[in-house]
């Protein structure tokens, strides 16, 4: 079938490509600016706050930043990692879609001599240079403390039934939030915890709440996120006729991690007892460590890290099995401090 015309076609096509490409491949030397590549898993209020914080810090340092968003696809994030290597960036910041899958991408970057830092989430199994993230375990523990205090007041002793709506358990933050929460709850054997994974999907928060509260006498709800969780959870409570304000009879305790605008609004209006605010507007601090380690070649000391006036202070830096880890403290937000201007949900 391959005739003369076809052969001619291919010959002309490849010849013209070679001519055109060699013609346009003459590039002058451009000034080298330190370039940061940042990989975000998705864009919502929370990740946008992180992105803005990193963008701002990079601008202050006069660095260039390239942002990619993976649309919650681990495969796409790996492709984007390779694109950043191809673009020749000097350092890569990553907030992995999947803590384990990103490992092969991290190895590729390291092969190309590019250091990789984690922001907000870390890896499992493949070490990074350093990760700056919220102390998620602390957030989970704070939530457990809040729920137990509520149960104590209600029954005179810590007992009852608590629903935990988990994030995507493939991410290490969800694992840590769950760990902090359940470790504290483990000390109170009369409190029963029902855990439902949601993959960070709104409809599964809705369904999880409806399914469990429709059949069992739940006293308290802990959600791994209020960015995604608060709206569906409150609407499920409403449908079940159990949406009752904080302090009134029959109120179901509700606490969630993040401290997003949605969460703070619910706290202000009295639907949510507490939000555990993440320091995501301060995640840009990772670039200070990039500058210290990668640009200046100094080592980062472990131990407590204090900054006066910052909500996340004192933070702690330590050596974990996935590289250096800096944990920024989470802040308990109740009706008393919900209008604090330093919270990212108010900015």
């Amino acid at each position: 079938m391959i005739g003369k015309t076809t052969l001619w076609f291919y010959a002309v096509l490849s010849f013209s490509i070679i001519v055109l490409v060699s013609g346009c491949n003459k590039k002058g030397d451009e000034k080298k600016v330190f370039t940061v590549g940042a990989l975000h898993p998705e864009m919502n209020a929370f990740h946008a706050a992180i992105k803005n914080s990193v963008d701002k810090r990079a601008e202050e340092k006069g660095w260039k930043i390239i942002n990619f968003t993976a649309g919650v696809s681990a495969e796409k994030q790996l492709d984007q990692m390779e694109n950043l290597i191809a673009l020749g960036v000097d350092v890569i910041l990553v907030c992995p879609v999947d803590a384990k899958s990103i490992g092969s991408g991290v190895k590729k970057a390291r092969d190309a001599g590019i250091p990789v830092y984690g922001v907000d989430r870390s890896t499992v199994g493949t070490p990074l240079n350093m990760t700056v993230q919220a102390d998620n375990e602390m957030g989970g523990r704070q939530a457990a403390e809040g729920a137990v205090a509520f149960l104590k007041e209600k029954y005179g002793e810590p007992k009852g039934l608590v629903l935990e709506l988990q994030g995507d358990m493939a991410s290490n933050v969800a694992q840590l939030r769950s760990k902090g929460f359940n470790e504290y709850m483990g000390k109170h054997p009369n409190v029963k915890v029902i855990s439902k994974p949601t993959e960070w999907k709104a409809e599964r928060f809705l369904k999880g709440t409806q399914d469990v509260l429709g059949t069992q006498p739940v006293d308290a709800i802990f959600s791994h996120t209020d960015v995604i969780g608060t709206t569906p959870i409150l609407s499920a409570l409403d449908q079940l006729g159990k949406k009752i304000k904080v302090g009134q009879k029959g109120h179901i305790w509700y606490g969630a991690i993040d401290g997003s605008p949605t969460g703070l609004k619910a706290v202000r209006e009295g639907w949510q007892d507490a939000s555990y605010s993440q320091p995501c507007t301060d995640c840009g601090i990772v670039l200070d460590f990039v500058e210290k380690e990668t640009v200046k070649g100094e080592t980062i000391e472990t131990g407590p890290f204090v900054k006066e006036g910052a909500l996340w202070s004192p933070a702690r830096i330590f050596k974990a099995d996935n590289g250096l880890m800096m944990l920024l403290a989470t802040t308990v937000v109740t009706k008393d401090n919900v209008d604090d201007k330093r919270l990212w949900g108010n900015q």
């Binding site: 495969e75 790996l78 899958s101 092969s104």
Partner: peptide, 15 residues
């Protein structure tokens, strides 16, 4: 794909 990603998840290949 599993070799390239050195992993697989329930969402692998979705869409």
């Amino acid at each position: 794909l599993a070799g390239r990603m050195d992993s697989a998840a329930m969402k692998t290949g979705e869409n």
